[in-house]
Simulated assay, not measured.
Amino acid sequence: MIHTTNYINTFIEIADDCTISHAKTPPEKKTKTLASLQYEQIKKNPYLYPSDDIIFECYAIKNNISESEKQQEKIQFFSKGQPCLRSSPLAKRYRFEIHHNKEGKVAIFAVDSKEYQNFLSDDTIKKVKAMRSKKK
């Protein structure tokens, strides 16, 4: 069985326990963090990739998976459930909302952007909260 992290026509809102007040780009570090990898993938390519591709590509980069190994590794990776973008540090820590369009392709928007307000007021888009960083 192949699992998926993709959503369709869904807006992932920031986590209730996000501690910063304005969207913040993940900091650059010597070794790229999951947050910086996801940010780069999505920000540079809005609405180009579905969640599955972003999550797997970040995994492949972090684990040095070669191009020739990717196809087989991706099948194995999604043979069990994987955390979706609701668990992304972008929505949990850095105040970026994640939008999945009608084709399931992903883009991110800062909490203080006009697009964010438009998504919030659009009743045709499903809204889900990012996962909290800490249990209540």
Rank of each mutant, 00 (worst) to 15 (best):
E57N: 15
I2D: 08
C84G: 13
K30A: 14
H22N: 11
N9V: 06
K44I: 01
F11G: 02
I65D: 01
N118V: 07
N9I: 03
H22E: 14
D16Y: 00
E57A: 12
F109S: 11
E73A: 15
Q82K: 14
P26A: 11
C58E: 04
C18R: 04
S87Y: 09
A23I: 00
S21W: 00
N63W: 11
S121M: 08
H3P: 05
K92N: 13
D17G: 01
I108T: 10
C84I: 01
N63H: 15
I20T: 07
V128E: 13
K24Q: 15
A35F: 09
S113G: 05
A23V: 01
I61Y: 02
L34P: 00
I55W: 04
K126C: 06
K44C: 02
Y49E: 05
E67A: 12
E73S: 14
V106E: 01
S88N: 08
H3T: 15
K62C: 05
L120I: 14
A15G: 12
E69A: 12
S36W: 04
L48Q: 13
T31D: 13
K105W: 07
K29C: 06
S66A: 12
L48A: 11
Y116E: 08
I125H: 06
N45Q: 12
A60Q: 04
E69G: 08
I75V: 11
S36A: 10
L37D: 03
Y7S: 01
D53G: 02
K43L: 07
D53M: 13
M1H: 14
Q38V: 07
N118R: 14
A107W: 10
S88W: 05
K62N: 07
V106Q: 03
I65V: 08
I75Q: 09
P27C: 00
L85D: 04
N63R: 11
I108L: 14
F119T: 00
Q38P: 02
F119S: 00
G104K: 04
M1V: 10
I75T: 10
Y49M: 06
A91E: 03
L90H: 02
N101H: 08
